[in-house]
Amino acid sequence: MKILVCISDVPDTTTKIKFKDNNTTLDVNGIQWIINPWDELALTRALELKEASGGIIQSVTVANVGTVASEPTIRKALAVGADNAIRIDAQPKDAYYVAAQLANIVKAESYDIVLVGRDSADYNGSAVGGMLAELIDYNSLSSVSSLNIENGKIRINREIDGGTETIEAELPFLAIVQKGISKEPRIPAMRGIMMARTKPLNVVQAVAVEILTEDVSFEMPQPKGSCKKFDSENVKTLVSLLHNEAKLI
């Protein structure tokens, strides 16, 4: 069996976001790039599954749609433990564009399990996983918070509106994963970093894809007015303000 983990290269979660060119482009100056937090957890889970499979899972591949600038992030994924990587050489345009590029890879290699994060910390599209599943015609489930393989089938837990469900799914299968899929992301060890340098990172050409959506401009939220602060002697005053002035309670 083979697992594919789709990884996105995103600004570190503490980044102060700024735009340039009249608010039409992200200012990447000084940004630290990381593996998207969900994708990092997905990769960790894929490696755990492989290690526990007794050789049944032969490989864990990571795929990224990005320019050469995302290679440090891909190398990190290799250092964490992925066996090989594919970079589809293109500047991502929108979710559909990315999904269509990934679909091409999956069609060529037929992976049994594909893992995609819930959303990417940049454009928050929550879209690539579902679109990919549709384009490659895979069975897919979303908001997956645990994943195991039992007797050739997948068993997952997922969050639903107001609870959780346990579902048994047939392979091949695409899971859109979230919190819980693995506990902590794996950190690359020295040995992993050394090995990552020689692991295969294949760069493939992008295919032409129609651009369905475009970010035309960005805006920052309105700054908040100053906070009306009270000390613990005046809790009652605050509560009556919330009641009378803000009409919140």
Binding site: I17, F19, S217, F218, E219
Partner: peptide, 9 residues
């Protein structure tokens, strides 16, 4: 976008 840090049109 950017986890509520900004809006995109």
């Amino acid at each position: 976008v950017f986890t509520s840090k900004a809006f995109s049109n």
